[in-house]
Write a protein that binds this DNA or RNA. Structure first.
Length: 742
DNA sequence: CAGGAAGCCATTTTT
DNA sequence: TGGCTTCCTG
């Protein structure tokens, strides 16, 4: 056993070496749980008579899965590749690809993501006997209600809703549509596996026999379906190890049920419980702050994180006039830090994606390289999804959603009216829309030439599906469909960006190592694109940039220096979290954010919040600030108590005048950098073509320089610029406020 | 039928 | 902020 427990503390060693039976590992933040998990997999392979595929290790993000696989591989070599390591969704997709047939789906099912779901719902709205107005029932809202129901494994018939509420009916039809299209949404991936395991004994037995040992990471984030799946899988052998931290449960909006972890010992009375309470990540001050904060939650497993690391620097609190000023303060601190630290050591963490703007702006203005994690995912981009839709339709002629997407993209003269008619025909005949098109073309006459043209395109791609390799196939889906030509013809910078994305997609496809079956390659490629998440785009370390992300995306990561920004009421905790249970979750989220920090932790909040049109209103400091023990800030009294009375700055409040009167108030916001272009220079631009190497540029603070390199995703391009006085810097083009000499 | 222009609206977190 | 729908024109 020694090889796997070497260098571990006693609790960690116990978690690694308790191989059989149920095991609950309560792993506090920074307690080395990934290490424990990987060692455990290694130990299992070594100590038990197992094949690699007898082990199932489930994570929540592909990134985490990839990391675990890598580390296991380093530990045990080759065998690691055959261990089942993946996200719940990826693992379920894999299981269903082999076993879904008893449920009436074909094994070549497609995965619908939320955008596909929305399209299904919108077509249902239009059905003549319903005619639901999107105004009365926003499709997105209905989608999330359906999701919530499915998360809780509630079928349409059991949804409780007022008589006038169309949700149950839309939900019912939605399920039928997916079935007809041989499609599964994210929740189905889990739900169908549960159905198989619970209602189809022979299938269940097959998988129970395969997965002799099961590990689940982030167990506090499992929902009902995932819980039932795990339970069904291990019911015989009970070799289940779960790792989690109830204090880091932050996904209840996605159906995560914290009771899964709180009740583990009831579910598995024989469970061994190991607590990993020693923190290897943060300084005492950071830990004290985070623990003090989360202690305000009532229903939690009491635990005491401790560390042998030094006391460390006190937390720093930055009080800003408004969000721009806040970004300015953060920027100033970062500038100071960069003397001794690399940009990659620093993270800015906020509650919502929308908060990133001012910080992006500030970083860009100062020429500090940054990466923004999240935002629009690569695979969620329109052009990517369009091309994938061609492939989906070619492979699966029943995929009406894919058809809807591409039937008139590029424009083929098949308009809304025609398409609507086709959907009606298809529904009446009970066939897929592609079939309806085929029928109409067969009859001929009228204006069926356009439809015939579309059919020919699809048939051509379908023909290629089984024969050529993936790269060629994706290339064909771009070119032979006229899709690429559409963007070429547009001849705008945006279009050029999209073309680059298409190239990137083709390159990604070409990089796939082919198996014997081209169809399976395609399937895997499509699955992967549907299941790829935002967290998977996290920059690998060493990218040399400040990382900006939401607290949710930050989970599982650590940085030497962390700024948690926007700590004011209605933002963090978020305005939509009002009930106690919701506040508790926000608090856990704040806890997650704080515990990402290793050495230095900055907290900041603006005293004014702006609404979309720039209307400012006073903001109160987050209650969480007051809940952090004062000593963590290196002083006896707590930071901003809950406001004695709401701060009521006069309407003319501009920041600087007021600030001078109150010693604790923010310094005046730095004067805005000059935004007006100087004579002879043009402020950039959305225009891409000026970003060519060699272009002379001017930057407000760094002076002039020459573009030496350009990369990054086209919608958010990065420029490496050699500034004459400051050397090379990476700048983000769209927000840089660069002045380019033309 | 397609594409552009103008108005409208809401806006958490994500596999 | 932009992402969407709606309206209008060719």
């Amino acid at each position: 056993m020694s090889r796997f427990t070497e260098g571990l503390n006693p609790e960690q060693a116990r978690a690694v070496s308790t191989l059989d039976g149920p095991l609950l590992i309560l792993a506090g933040a920074g307690s080395g749980k990934t290490r424990v998990l990987t060692r455990r997999v290694g130990a299992l392979l070594d100590e038990r008579d197992l094949r690699p595929w007898n082990i199932l290790a489930v994570t929540f993000t592909n990134k985490a899965a990839g990391e675990m696989r890598e580390r296991v591989e380093r530990l045990v070599g080759e065998a690691a590749r055959q261990v089942w390591i993946g996200t719940f969704h990826a693992v379920c997709a894999r299981i269903l690809r082999q076993s879904i047939e008893p449920l009436g789906w074909r094994r070549d099912f497609v995965v619908y993501d939320d955008d596909d779901q929305l399209r299904v719902i919108k077509t249902i709205y239009q059905e003549s006997d319903l005619r639901i107005s999107p105004k009365d029932y926003p499709p997105a809202q209905l989608r999330s209600r359906i999701d919530r129901a499915k998360n809780g494994m509630i079928p349409p018939a059991e949804v409780v809703a007022p008589r006038s509420d169309p949700m149950p009916e839309v939900y019912r039809r939605y399920e039928l549509r997916l079935k007809a299209a041989n499609a599964l949404d994210f929740n189905d991936l889990i739900g169908k596996v549960v159905e198989l395991l619970e209602a189809h004994p022979t299938v269940a037995e097959r998988w129970q026999r395969q997965f002799k040992y099961v590990l689940v990471d982030e167990y506090q984030d499992t929902n009902i379906g995932q819980y039932r799946m795990v339970k069904a899988l291990v019911q015989e052998h009970q070799n289940l190890a779960v790792v989690g931290d109830d204090d880091q449960s932050i996904y209840s909006f996605r159906g995560a049920d914290i009771r899964n972890i709180l009740d583990f010992e009831k579910d598995f009375p024989a469970a061994t419980v190991v607590r990993l309470e020693r923190n290897y990540r943060s300084t005492q001050n950071i830990l004290r702050a985070a623990s003090g904060l989360v202690r305000h939650n009532l229903a939690r497993k009491e635990k005491t994180l401790w560390t042998e690391s030094e006391v460390g620097e006190p937390l720093r609190l930055l009080t800003a006039a408004d969000d721009n000023h806040e970004a300015e303060l953060v920027r100033a601190e970062i500038d100071r830090l960069l003397v001794t630290r690399r940009p990659a050591d620093i993270a800015i963490i906020y509650r919502t994606n929308a908060q990133s703007r001012p910080f992006e702006q500030a970083m860009a203005d100062a020429g500090i390289p940054y990466v923004l994690v999240g935002g629009r995912k690569f695979y969620a981009r329109q052009e990517i999804r369009d091309v994938l839709a061609y492939l989906r339709l070619a492979m699966n002629p029943t995929d009406d959603v894919a058809l809807l997407r591409v039937v008139n993209t590029p424009a083929r003269g098949i308009g809304d009216k025609t398409v609507e008619g086709l959907f009606v025909e298809a529904r009446e005949a009970g066939v897929p829309v592609l079939e309806a098109i085929r029928a109409r073309v067969g009859i001929g006459g009228g204006r069926t030439d356009k439809l015939a043209g579309f059919l020919a395109v699809i048939d051509r791609i379908a023909e290629l599906c089984g024969t050529v390799n993936l790269g060629t196939l994706v290339q064909a889906a771009c070119n032979d469909t006229g899709y690429r030509a559409m963007w070429v013809a547009e001849d705008t910078d945006e279009a050029r960006g999209r073309l680059e994305n298409l190239d990137a997609l083709v390159a990604a496809a070409a990089a796939v190592v082919p198996t014997q079956s081209p169809v399976e390659d395609l399937q895997a490629f499509l699955d992967q694109s549907a299941l790829a998440g935002q967290a998977d785009e996290l920059p690998d370390e060493g990218r040399g940039a400040v990382t900006m992300l939401t607290a949710h995306l930050a989970k599982g990561l650590e940085f030497p220096v962390v700024f948690v920004v926007g700590l004011c009421e209605k933002t963090f905790p978020h305005a939509r979290s009002e009930r106690d249970s919701e506040i508790a979750e926000e608090r856990r989220l704040a806890y997650v954010a704080l515990t990402r920090a290793r050495d230095l932790l900055f907290l900041s909040y603006p005293r004014m919040k702006r609404s979309p049109e720039g209307w400012s209103q006073p903001a109160l400091p987050s209650r969480f600030l007051a809940e952090i023990p004062a000593e963590a800030f290196g002083r006896a009294s707590a930071p901003p108590r809950r406001p004695p009375s709401a701060p009521t700055p006069p309407p003319s409040w501009g920041g600087s005048a007021r600030a001078a009167q109150r010693p604790w108030a923010p310094r005046a916001p730095a004067p805005a950098p000059p935004r007006a272009p100087r004579p002879g220079r043009t402020l950039v631009p959305e225009s891409m073509e000026v970003f060519q190497a060699g272009t002379e540029v001017y930057h407000p603070t760094l002076g002039s320089g020459t573009i030496s390199r350009r990369d990054g995703i086209p919608s958010n391009p990065k420029l490496t610029i050699h500034f004459h006085d400051h050397g090379p810097r990476t700048v983000f083009a769209l927000t840089a406020g660069l002045e380019v000499l033309l």
